[in-house]
Simulated scan of single mutants.
Amino acid sequence: MWAFLHKLASPQGFYALSARLSPWCWGLAACLIGGGMIWGLGFAPADYQQGNSFRIIYVHVPAALLAQSIYVAMALAGLVFLVWRVKLADMAATAMAPLGAGMTFLALFSGAVWGVPTWGTWWQWDARLTSMLILLFLYIGVLALRGALGTRQSAARAASVLTLVGVINIPIIKYSVEWWYTLHQPATFSVTSRPAMPAEMWLPLLVMVLGFYCLFLAVTLTRTRHEILRREASRRWVQALTGEGP
Rank of each mutant, 00 (worst) to 15 (best):
A19L: 02
V238C: 10
G13S: 10
W123R: 09
G150T: 15
G141L: 09
V167W: 03
R223C: 09
V177W: 03
P11T: 10
L65K: 06
Y139R: 13
A107S: 13
V191L: 15
Q12D: 13
P117N: 14
L138W: 01
Q68M: 14
A107H: 01
T104G: 14
T220Q: 09
A127I: 06
F105R: 04
Y175Q: 13
C31E: 08
P204L: 11
W119R: 07
A73M: 12
R231M: 05
I168P: 02
C31L: 15
L28D: 10
D90R: 08
L129H: 03
T104R: 03
R225D: 10
M197F: 07
L106H: 01
D126Q: 04
L203Y: 11
R225T: 11
Q49N: 12
M91P: 02
F105M: 14
A101W: 01
W125F: 12
N169W: 01
N169V: 12
A158L: 12
L143S: 11
Q49V: 15
A155K: 04
W179G: 06
W2D: 15
S160Q: 09
S176Y: 01
L66S: 12
P246Q: 12
L129G: 03
R85D: 13
A29K: 10
A9C: 11
G211R: 04
H60Q: 04
G100A: 08
A29G: 12
P246W: 04
L32E: 03
Y213H: 15
F212M: 11
F14H: 12
L99T: 13
I168F: 09
Q50S: 07
L65P: 00
F81C: 08
L108Y: 04
W202G: 11
K174L: 07
W202C: 08
T188M: 08
L99H: 00
I140H: 00
V86T: 12
V238Y: 05
L41K: 00
K174A: 06
D126L: 07
P11W: 04
Y213N: 13
F212V: 05
V177G: 05
A158G: 08
G120F: 02
T224Q: 10
R157C: 11
V219D: 09
W114R: 00
L205P: 01
N169R: 04
L217D: 09
L183W: 00
W119Y: 06
L79F: 15
A156Y: 09
V167T: 14
R146A: 02
T222I: 02
A127L: 07
A93D: 03
A97W: 00
G102E: 05
S22E: 15
T130E: 04
Y71V: 06
P204Y: 02
V80I: 15
Y181N: 14
V177Y: 01
I140R: 00
A89N: 05
F43W: 15
V86L: 13
D47V: 00
R157A: 10
Q12N: 10
R146N: 10
V59N: 01
T163L: 05
K87A: 11
T118K: 06
P195L: 10
V209P: 00
I56R: 00
G111M: 01
F212S: 08
A46T: 13
F54Y: 03
T242L: 15
M132C: 02
A16E: 12
E227W: 05
C31S: 12
F14Y: 14
A29Y: 05
P204K: 05
A101V: 01
A144L: 15
G51I: 07
Q185A: 14
L210P: 03
A73L: 12
T118D: 03
L149N: 08
L183H: 02
V142T: 02
T94V: 04
L99C: 05
R152I: 05
